[in-house]
Simulated assay, not measured.
Amino acid sequence: MLVSESNLNYELQDIYILDNGTFYFFDNFIISEVKEGVLFDWEMAQEIIAIAESYYGVGQKIAYISNRVHPYSLVPQDWLKFFKAKNFISAFAVVSYSQQERSNILLERLFFKSKIKKFFDLEEAVKWAISEQLKYDDRKTTA
């Protein structure tokens, strides 16, 4: 399900339409919908990081949901670059609609230091992301 087809539009704060996909910004999470056939690499990730830092502030952690409505490829080794440079993700979810995407998640888990939660329903992923962000915020305030 596309974000535009969901009931999430009332919570939507901003949309960034880039060459590689559309990124939906909410209060404390981002949903990405990468275009079909894109090879999502470190350079593209840097563009999203810069937008997120400009939008939420440098050092602010947020939840990230990859809504994989279109098939695309990732450069798994670039996860290592991402975490060496900046880690602004408090929780990471993938919404998968195909068997191939489910297999890709297994590969990504080899490179991603934190847990990747997989879902088959966008709205369930959003509920989880909000819950995880609240847990992160609680840990931050009690530390």
Rank of each mutant, 00 (worst) to 15 (best):
F29M: 08
F29H: 09
S32Y: 05
S32A: 14
S32R: 06
V34Y: 02
E36N: 14
L39I: 14
F40C: 00
F40E: 06
E43I: 09
M44T: 05
A45G: 08
Q46Y: 05
Q46E: 15
E47Q: 15
E47F: 01
A50I: 08
I51P: 04
I51H: 08
A52E: 11
A52G: 06
A52K: 12
E53K: 13
S54T: 11
Y55T: 04
Y55D: 06
Y56T: 02
G57Y: 08
K61M: 11
I62C: 03
I65C: 05
I65G: 01
I65A: 01
S66C: 12
N67K: 06
R68D: 07
H70Q: 14
H70A: 13
H70W: 10
P71E: 14
Y72H: 14
Y72G: 04
S73W: 09
S73I: 07
L74Q: 03
L74A: 05
L74F: 08
V75L: 07
V75E: 02
P76Q: 06
Q77V: 00
D78V: 03
D78R: 03
W79L: 07
K81L: 09
K81G: 01
F82P: 00
F83G: 00
F83W: 10
N87S: 12
S90Q: 06
A91S: 14
F92I: 09
V94G: 07
V94F: 03
V95D: 05
S98W: 07
S98L: 09
S98Q: 10
S98N: 08
Q99K: 13
Q100E: 11
E101H: 10
R102G: 07
R102N: 13
S103A: 14
N104Y: 11
N104M: 13
I105P: 03
I105A: 12
E108L: 02
R109H: 06
R109M: 14
R109Q: 15
L110P: 00
F111Q: 07
F111P: 04
K113I: 13
K113Q: 09
S114A: 11
S114L: 11
K115R: 13
I116K: 04
K118R: 09
F119T: 12
F120K: 11
F120S: 14
F120W: 06
L122R: 02
E123K: 07
E124V: 09
A125Y: 03
V126W: 01
K127P: 01
K127V: 15
W128E: 13
A129M: 10
I130S: 04
S131H: 10
Q133L: 06
Q133R: 08
L134S: 11
L134T: 12
L134Y: 10
K135H: 12
